[in-house]
């Protein structure tokens, strides 16, 4: 019974907070650039509007086109259930924890790329090929960084990782943790399509990646994909804050612990949002061919982190 409640609570929290995070980042970025920006609940309005609209489906599209939004949304939501969010115990733990997280995200990305290719438009294919190029390097970097933490905790189960970190003071000052954090942060920027890699604010530009793949989607499908994208963003941010700085995680699912955990969680997410906004405003978008260099840096940082766990 308790586990069902926990699952529902975490799922609801993720679904509700995810668009808010997108909105907060957008507004903060606008303020940084001395624009007024849209209100922070604008993503909810967008989703509401899209869900009521009719869809246009290209004649050339097959079943893959319709399956993609569900796969993208559901994989992101499922990964959300496998990560400790407000309590150290994640409601769901499947085959190998971290590995399942990485591969479920990869499954969503794979379908998104297929959906982009399916309609046969040249933009879609372009976006898909770019997305796959980037993820081919981002994924190993992410795995290496997470393994560093998993080795320190002697478990690939994320709940165990979070629990083992509680009570170790100065742990996050260890070089391996810092390096792995740096690697994960670059991966976060790349995977969520933030500025040095992709520009989330453009709709028609030759350099776009995420937007190019979903160009043919409209109405409820687009809503599902956008919601899935913001879920994935929140999931990755949660993974980052709760594996490296697991302060305030509630040891059990009870009302008081969850309230405190949620407060800590929101503060941590807000700090990560600030970091992302600062990176986005102070950097220019990279040329596509320079992106692998940035990701190579992430991979090297992750690899150094892994090496240094064995020595320091």
């Amino acid at each position: 019974m308790n586990i069902i409640l926990a699952t529902l609570a975490q799922l609801l929290l993720f679904l509700i907070i995810a668009p808010l995070v997108t909105g907060v980042i957008r507004t903060m970025k606008a303020r940084f650039q001395t624009r007024r920006g849209s209100p922070i609940w604008q993503p909810y309005r967008d989703l509401h509007k899209l869900l009521r609209k009719d869809m246009v489906i290209p004649d050339t599209a097959s079943w893959l086109f319709s399956a993609t939004p569900y796969v993208v949304f559901l994989t992101a939501a499922m990964v959300g259930l496998m990560i400790p969010m407000v309590a150290a115990d994640a409601p769901l733990s499947l085959f190998g924890g971290v590995l399942a997280v990485v591969y479920l995200l990869a499954l969503g990305r794979f379908f998104l790329a297929l959906g982009g290719l399916d309609t046969g438009s040249s933009f879609g294919g372009l976006g898909s090929s770019r997305e796959m190029t980037i993820s081919a390097i981002a994924e190993p970097a992410m795995m290496v960084a997470i393994f560093t933490v998993a080795i320190a905790a002697n478990s690939t189960n994320l709940s165990e990782v979070a629990k083992s970190a509680v009570g170790q003071s100065w742990r996050f000052l260890a070089p391996s943790q810092m390096l792995a954090f740096g690697a994960m942060f670059i991966v976060l920027i790349a995977e969520t399509g933030r500025i040095p890699v992709d520009n989330p604010a453009t709709h028609l530009e030759l350099t776009m990646i995420h937007e190019a793949m979903i160009l043919e989607y409209s109405g409820p499908y687009l809503a599902l994909i956008e919601w899935g994208a913001s879920l994935k963003q929140l999931v990755l941010m949660t993974l980052l804050v709760n594996t490296f700085f697991p302060f305030g995680l509630s040891p059990a699912w009870n009302a008081q612990g969850v309230a405190i955990g949620l407060a800590f969680y929101l503060i941590k997410i807000a700090i990560i949002c600030c970091l992302i906004v600062m990176v986005e405003t102070t950097n220019a978008k990279m040329r596509l061919f320079r992106v692998p260099e940035l990701l190579a840096v992430a991979f090297i940082l992750g690899a150094l982190a892994l090496i240094s766990t064995f020595l320091f």
Binding site: L173, P175, M178, L179, I300, L301, L304, S308, F312
Partner: peptide, 20 residues
């Protein structure tokens, strides 16, 4: 010790940054 190791790690990262 922690602080020294941490700074050494950053020195290494900067060296690699120089390569990149």
């Amino acid at each position: 010790n922690r602080i020294i190791t941490l700074m050494a790690a950053f020195v290494l990262v900067l060296q690699i940054a120089m390569v990149g």
